[in-house]
Design a protein around this nucleic acid. Structure first.
Lengths: 342, 342
DNA sequence: TTGTAAGCGTTATCAC
DNA sequence: GTGATAACGCTTACAA
């Protein structure tokens, strides 16, 4: 239905090739023919057919971004940065939400492959299941073999695949955070971990445990959530009815920490007077809570932009580490009376 | 580089047409040839070439979503719902952030048009500039003429274009909220509006003013933000140095309300003891703030899903209104001492 | 500087 | 059931 190159060519009295050339500006065109063509283009409201161009030129104007959940600010912010960087290169960004499902991750990788996207940014912690890893590795290898620029953001490359990765130092961050909590004198500390078998979960958990081990301590309790606010709430409810005396709860991310704070408040436990709470990520919401959340910031602005450029094929990306930063606010204080006996 | 239909056909000893048929399952194929083909497909790690298919079949596997900012939970949640609905139909979702810029909106519409996406969901308030409206109208008309399913979400259709629209009753919500504030006895109420010349801004502002008018009142002050937290903060700072005695601040959305609360807290003004604050949208963060934010909820779950299905071409959407709901929490109380004289 | 024509990898219409 | 063979709308040598 819409006008095509031939229509424009006919109206302008030139060949389709010429129209293509003024469109792409990659070949010299006489000034006067150019204006004729331009007029015809406008006259017909011509819009390039992307798929046709992609097929002929073997290159697409789209990059793919895979995240856990765009509505989680942690990923939403990354998605926005990636999309913006894509737009700067006149590319569009397909965004996929896996909701943490390894199967969805593979499914979306496949869908992006068949769109022949120019690049793929895979964000968030990776499932640790070896079968999933090899499956991912295969797809990523296939992608790079096809000339797709693959970039990892916040996860290590699966063994055997050589793709650049922007990594966050989760372990160091968790260690710094735990040390901060310990330095205030806490000894009975509970940990709300992320979903099992996930690289981010493991890195943060390891850092936490390492810090405790330095003091000859172990977690007073460990419970797994799924990084959602709701799961943090549930986790805290669980701790409330089984772990009296816990004076601090460290969550693997801010969303869960927010859930913890809400649960404690609901049960009349004062934060940080009775129990201290800490998170990870430094979401914008951290400063709006009372008490403001002590957490770890991942300044990924620059890294995300570099990832976006690399996915668009504008830069080679060597990959690298993003150092994280302990953010001390008000939700962690000296040990209080701890979780009440129920 | 990747295997194509011909390669598979050759390996399976059949014609490309047959391979295409087993791939699409839209024509009968003998059981045994089917398995030969399936084997060959697997053997070669075949992946359909999306652009080629889109060109030949004149239909794409992608929908486009235009939002203000995915990292704003209000849009992030909508984006997630739309993407999810797309995925259910085996479609991918391109997500575009306009950051409220009308020019970007047009730019992205154009880019989506040339991708020949199957559908487009345009979310958020629309710029009221007539020139922009006619420009939008043209593009939307072009899209529907090309068979693209256009759906509006949270904005009215520009004059002259007949596309379904899922609308939120912003005006009624704002009126209900303002009435609630008034009912507690407030008389000096400031309003933090959204960006000028935007349909959402206008609808909410109108509702607010209508309620005040019912009491023969007018806003004690009106200042415009851009729906961001930061702009809310700035707005409150402005009010603090020029409008003593204001006992309530109503913001056009939650993000700005959060900024207002933060600014008041920073200046030692107690909420709601001295000044009441209200928002709009009912973001998840509303319950984490202290005091929990009184606001208006837009239960758009269902509407967003319907919009997603319509964009994917699975349903015709008649369009309709989503009723909003006043959510009374703790940030609005009886009038206190008001903003201090500086 | 411009035109001709051969692809690009599918789908779809015919025949067989 | 299956195989040729045109499209689909564009890019890009290759000629002119």
């Amino acid at each position: 239905m819409p006008a095509k190159l031939d229509d424009v060519a006919r109206l302008a009295g030139v060949s389709p090739a010429t129209v293509s050339r003024v469109l792409n500006g990659n070949y010299p065109v006489a000034a006067q023919t150019r204006v004729k063509v331009l007029d015809a283009l406008r006259e017909l409201d011509y819009v390039v057919n992307g798929p046709a161009r992609a097929l002929a030129a073997a290159t697409s104007d789209v990059i793919g971004v895979i995240v856990n959940d765009v509505s989680d600010p942690f990923f939403g912010i990354q998605a926005r940065g990636l999309q913006r960087e894509a737009a700067d290169a006149d590319l569009l960004a397909i965004i996929c939400n896996t909701a943490g499902s390894p199967a969805d991750e593979l499914k979306y990788l496949g869908m992006l492959l068949r769109q022949r996207v120019r690049g793929i940014v895979l964000t968030g912690g990776a499932p640790e299941d070896p079968r999933h890893q090899t499956a991912t590795a295969r797809l990523l290898a296939q992608a790079t073999a096809a000339g797709t620029h693959v970039v990892l953001c916040g996860r290590p490359a699966p063994p055997g695949v050589d793709v650049p990765s922007v990594s966050f130092d989760n372990e160091a961050g968790a260690r710094a955070l735990a040390r901060h909590v310990l330095s205030l004198g806490h000894e009975r500390i509970a940990y709300v971990a992320g979903p099992p078998a996930n690289t981010t979960t493991t890195a943060r958990h390891d850092g936490f445990r390492a810090a405790l081990a330095e003091h000859g301590l172990d977690a007073a309790a460990t419970v797994h959530g799924d990084f959602s606010r709701h799961s943090g709430f549930e986790a805290a409810v669980g701790l409330l009815r089984g772990h009296p005396g816990v004076t601090a709860i460290v969550a693997a991310n801010d969303l869960m920490a927010l859930g913890v704070v809400a649960a404690l408040r609901r049960h009349g436990v004062d934060v940080p007077g009775e129990v201290s709470v800490a998170g990870f990520d430094d979401l914008p919401a951290c400063v709006d809570v009372v008490p403001a959340l002590t957490t770890v910031r991942i300044p990924f602005e620059r890294g995300v932009r570099a990832a976006g450029r690399a996915a668009g094929g504008r830069d080679r990306l060597a990959g690298g580490w993003i150092e994280v930063e302990l953010i001390v606010r008000d939700s962690v204080a000296r040990p209080g009376r701890g979780l009440p006996a129920r």
